[in-house]
Design a protein around this nucleic acid. Structure first.
Lengths: 351, 351
DNA sequence: TTGTATGCGTTATCAG
DNA sequence: CTGATAACGCATACAA
């Protein structure tokens, strides 16, 4: 017998009891004679009885596992988020099932279909850069699937959301470049269909305007694949560098964009910050080891994962529809050249 | 109704058929009239019927999900491995359930218990640095749970294993330091209970001996927590630097050790490679961006994940006990200062 | 206090 | 070709 799976039925047979008695002995405290309970428990212990979680799921209509969909696990930010999620999930006896969209809408939908239909109790998702049609998610939400969005949220769906303070993060990043004396600051960002893109770009623009600069659309470049495809970043960078009025600094609005900008500069022999300024979102833990240290905006990834999982649990366990859904905004932190960490000036929570 | 889960029974009732007919229409091709089949399929399609995977699991005694236990997801190497695993799993309709041991034996066991007892069809594991007693895994293996080890393997358990060519990786790393002219090369490594530690240390020693150096035990330091605890790495580094005959280079035998060594050097104002040589295992994708570029030994993490998952699938689907288990060894690659990538001189597979 | 019967969603077996 | 029934492992309403 595979895994020698011992069941309640086996125990019942061995002990000359009925399955229900055994079942009760295993769960209840009263409604069972102490003696029988002892015998059953003893036997169960000795034979290392483990309830079959699948049978339990079928009966209780809950799987005690939650699904997580991100574009890619092998991305510092997301792996840190998942770390936070797993940490809380573990403490509460939940399994985490991982799926990657790889920034593809099609895969996102497939993963969604795959994870749903009762096999998960809830979903934490950060939508892909390609996703523009969220009807599938909406439908899922209407069907009362507990959903929590992290980072890349969908505004139209009324449920809990966990985001970083993208606006102020981008604002401060741009401000930092301005304070360093750069005059023509370009922005490389992800598609405007993503919430994070819009928030970050808004912060970038506001910082420029607040400091007497004008927003120049030819200095704003979008990467449809969120930096996943290196050549795309290369292309937009080339466009920027071939401009009549070249930018003297770049604000990169996402992890992969920041590191890929760095790669491109290195390949071209352009040194940061001597030849060009660079500031961007990035959660890599090696930023401070780059010489000279790379200035970055960091999202509190682990905490975002934790918060998301806590909110999800709340929804799952309450079993009520979410009326008072909230958007938790966690502040970003800025790691600037010279190893100082500067926190953004924002409160931790908003609703 | 939560998720409005439509079942076979619902379809049967709506169409005035029996559940078995519906079931057949959904699976079989013959043994059912084309007409009924059409009607059922049409209705199922229209109402977006999705078979309940949990009920299927209960019936088929397989969950189509596999468990993965690593010490930490937020570690470049492991997140890349998981990426590879997930990639193959996805193609084959399997779910990946992630658990983290955080280098704790206790958590490893808890995760193991949690994942097993029929809720997973197979297991891919990289054991924690703390683990020395593998009886639980052995028991699981005896109970025919398909297991594949990645990276940190357990020799005594006869099943598929996927490793990198640690010996040659470490050998070449040490050789590189020797070729750079360093004379007193220290090693910082993980506990010798781990297979990777032994293999890498052996490579380090062999390189020294082959080149006329003697192995000096006071230059070999162990970190019980595999680099997870920064202060521990600091302590052993201090011990090394306070030696009468200080080392002039360090070989770091694991990802976290390499990056933490770098951090320590930076904090102490010791520059690499001018003041001290450093070469180590590391899968961070930013090594080449550190100035001067950090020389590292890279494991083919993604491929290791892929291979592990393929082997696991093979075992799961064959349903036979593994007689001809094999150890797949993938070659490491060396990224050395100056951006050249040097491959180790080893064939891709051994058994 | 204990046992019997039922159902969770599905498929396989056996009748019809 | 189709329908009734049992079974997967468990929990529980109901009966004893």
């Amino acid at each position: 017998m595979k895994f020698e799976a011992i069941t309640i039925k086996d125990i019942a047979k061995a002990l000359g009891l009925s399955t229900s008695t055994v079942s009760r002995a295993l769960r209840d405290s009263h409604e069972i004679s102490p003696e029988t309970k002892r015998i059953v428990l003893e036997y169960a212990e000795k034979n290392n009885y483990q309830p079959n979680p699948i049978a339990l799921s079928l009966k209780e209509r809950r799987s005690r596992s939650i699904g997580v969909i991100v574009c890619e696990i092998a991305n510092s930010y997301f792996s840190q988020v998942i770390n936070g999620i797993e940490s809380i999930a573990y403490d509460n006896g939940y399994n985490v099932i991982i799926a990657q969209s790889r920034e593809s809408f099609e895969r996102e939908i497939l993963n969604l279909q795959y994870l749903t239909s009762r096999s998960i109790d809830g979903l934490i998702i950060s939508v892909s850069t390609e996703s523009k049609d969220f009807s599938y998610l909406k439908e899922l939400h209407q069907k009362k699937m507990p959903i929590v969005f992290v980072d890349r949220i969908v505004d139209e769906i009324e449920t809990h959301k966990v985001i970083a303070d993208n606006y102020n993060g981008a604002y401060n990043a741009t401000l930092h470049l301005i304070e360093c004396g750069y005059k023509r600051i370009a922005a490389i960002t992800t598609p405007s269909s993503l919430s994070i893109s819009r928030e970050r770009l808004a912060g970038y623009k506001a910082a420029l305007i607040d400091n007497g600069f004008e927003v120049n659309d030819e200095l704003i470049k979008y990467c449809q694949h969120g930096g996943m495809i290196f050549s795309e970043v290369q292309d937009v960078m080339n466009e920027l560098l071939e401009l009549e009025n070249k930018p003297d600094a770049v604000f990169a609005a996402a992890d992969k964009l920041t590191t890929n900008c760095l790669r491109i500069f290195k390949a071209k022999g352009i040194s940061v910050p001597a030849d060009i300024g660079l500031m961007g979102f990035s959660n890599t833990d090696l930023a401070e080891l780059i010489q000279p240290p790379l200035s970055v905006i960091r999202q509190p990834a682990f905490e975002m994962g934790e918060v998301a999982m806590k909110l999800l649990l709340q929804v799952i366990e309450s079993k009520r529809p979410v009326i008072d859904f909230e958007t938790k905004m966690l502040s970003t932190e800025m790691l600037i050249r010279g190893s100082t960490i500067k926190y953004s000036n924002i409160s931790n929570l908003t609703s």
